[in-house]
């Protein structure tokens, strides 16, 4: 299978906003995500996960190393990479339907086709009946579904997700994780999902990339060999194919966290 997203020797430095000191955020990161693969990036806070995502999205310029999507070097933001942000990034002044169709609108897709595509994704994320609502009328979970549908509807080559479920309550998070899995099956999207939550990474990822503390390095890669269709929380908790790699990831992440306190 061809790799859709290839990162090679990526390093990043930036001056601290207040002190002006040089911050070494990423150190020679190399990884690749294959077509249709769901990859998760896990690491302690401040390991450069969000920096990585911003570089991949093209929001931050990178000086060292290369980032390629579909064989093309990334040189700025573009519709080939869709991003689901941590905060609620859907626009408050647009209805659910107009938010979801926003990417297509920017791409200049004709209204009739756009409306059809929007409806498809409204249904996919379970927002039917809420098309004409404004974001402030939605719950936190519904807002993130809307954000997810907006990104999917623009049909990006790679979908980048930056801790999208961090701000919702625990029950909603479980539902959203299962739904994202269902959507990943339905759309076969290539996904890079960033999280600090080990359970979430192991539940969703085909492969998990574990990052070290700053400067963020790729410390290890762990594969989770559970078929997508079997990824349902109530079944998975006693499944060794899930718990073993999850414990392994947990151990790797804890090493990074507890180093700090010694």
């Amino acid at each position: 299978m061809p790799a859709k997203l290839v990162v090679e020797g990526l390093s990043h430095h930036y001056p601290d906003e207040y002190t002006g000191e040089d911050v070494h955020a990423l150190d020679r990161v190399s990884l690749s995500v294959e077509d249709g693969e769901f990859s998760a990036v896990v690491g302690p806070s401040g390991c450069g996960k969000t920096t990585l995502l911003n570089i991949l999205a093209g929001l931050l310029p990178h000086t060292e190393g290369s980032v390629q999507v579909d064989g093309k070097e990334v040189g700025g933001p573009g519709p080939d990479r869709g991003v689901v942000f941590q905060e609620h990034a859907i626009l408050p002044w647009r209805t659910v339907a107009r938010n979801i169709g926003h990417g297509l609108e920017i791409q200049g897709v004709a209204r009739s086709e756009r409306e059809q595509r929007v409806q498809e994704f409204v249904d996919l994320v379970g927002l039917s009946g809420f098309e004409d609502r404004y974001p402030h009328e939605l719950s936190g979970g519904m807002k993130q579904r809307c954000a997810l549908a907006r990104t999917l509807c623009a049909n990006p080559v790679v979908m980048l997700m930056d801790e999208p479920f961090a701000a919702v309550d625990a029950q909603t998070r479980i539902t959203l994780q299962e739904e994202l899995n269902r959507i990943a099956i339905a759309t076969k999207k290539t996904i890079l999902f960033i999280t600090h939550n080990v359970d979430e990474a192991a539940f969703l990822g085909d492969r998990c990339f574990i990052f070290s503390r700053r400067p963020g390095k790729l410390k290890a890669t762990v594969k989770i060999n559970v078929p997508r269709e079997k990824r349902i929380w109530k079944d998975l908790l006693s499944e060794k194919a899930y718990t073993d790699p999850r414990d392994e990831i947990l151990r790797l992440v804890r090493e990074e966290v507890f180093d700090d306190e010694e």
């Binding site: 999205a57 093209g58 933001p77 573009g78 942000f85 905060e87 990034a89 626009l91 926003h102 920017i106």
Partner: peptide, 26 residues
Amino acid sequence: PRVYENSVMTMGGNRWAIITQVYIPG
């Protein structure tokens, strides 16, 4: 919020789209 601007940029929106669809309504 910066995130609105970023989200429109990642959807391929240009400066003009950001002005009319983010800055002014925001």
